[in-house]
Amino acid sequence: MITGKCDCGKVSFSVPAVRKTVTACHCSQCRRASGHIWASTQASDVTDLTFANDEGLTWYASSDFAKRGFCKFCGSSLFYRLNTEPGIAIAAGCIDTPTGLQMGKHICVADKGDYYEIKDGLEQLDTH
């Protein structure tokens, strides 16, 4: 079982399994929401997510096709979910260690910030 939480602990969860790779999104929306890049893994179905505490969980409709879950108390950015798909992206940084995760790829690099370079040799896609 994989567990995770926000910074203040008012959102804590478990999920039986996640994808073992992390995707870093460099789009402007993800950069604004996270403060740099949005790095996440994926659970195959949102119904696999069990909350030990969801007191702080709030959802924000960040576009007409997706929403973001965050803690309304500490501001931790935790989840990203497309409205039409069963899966849910989980912020890699909120998963308790050891995670067993590895960086996998970068997406939306055509929209990345102008203050950094991506030099890790991983796959880079201009879009999602």
Rank of each mutant, 00 (worst) to 15 (best):
Y116F: 07
D114S: 14
I95W: 00
K72T: 15
I95M: 07
V18G: 02
L122M: 06
C25I: 06
W38H: 09
A66H: 08
K105D: 09
S34Y: 15
D120A: 12
F13P: 01
D126M: 10
M103E: 11
R31Y: 00
V18S: 02
K67R: 06
A61N: 04
G87A: 13
A52C: 02
A92Q: 01
R32V: 14
C27E: 10
D126F: 01
T84K: 14
H36R: 13
R19D: 05
E123A: 15
G69A: 07
Q102C: 10
E123N: 11
T47S: 10
K67C: 06
T21Y: 04
S40Y: 04
I95F: 02
F65Q: 12
Y115E: 04
S62G: 10
V109Q: 06
C108K: 00
N53C: 04
L78N: 06
Q124R: 13
C30E: 13
Q42Y: 09
S62A: 09
G113A: 05
L49C: 05
F65H: 11
Y115L: 04
T41I: 05
G9W: 00
N83Y: 15
A61C: 05
D7C: 10
G93H: 03
G69M: 04
G113H: 08
I90R: 00
K112W: 14
D120S: 10
C30Y: 11
F70S: 12
I88A: 09
I107N: 08
D111M: 11
T41H: 01
E55S: 12
M103I: 06
C6E: 02
F70M: 13
W38L: 08
S28I: 12
E123R: 09
G100I: 13
G93A: 07
S63A: 10
I118Q: 08
F79S: 07
T3P: 02
L125Y: 14
L49R: 02
S63L: 09
I88W: 01
D96K: 13
C94T: 14
A24V: 15
L122I: 05
F13L: 02
E123G: 12
C94W: 06
I88V: 14
A43Y: 00
G4I: 03
A39I: 12
T99V: 10
L57R: 11
D54S: 07
R31M: 07
G69E: 05
Q102I: 13
K72Q: 13
A110P: 05
K119T: 15
N83F: 15
G75L: 11
K67M: 04
Q124I: 12
V18I: 09
F51H: 10
T3S: 06
G121Y: 00
C71H: 07
G35D: 00
D120C: 11
R32H: 14
R32W: 15
S76A: 13
I118H: 03
K105L: 09
C25M: 04
T99M: 08
I88T: 05
S28C: 08
G69C: 05
D45T: 09
V15C: 03
A43T: 09
G100V: 11
F65V: 15
D48I: 04
E85Y: 14
T41K: 00
S62Q: 05
G100T: 11
C25D: 07
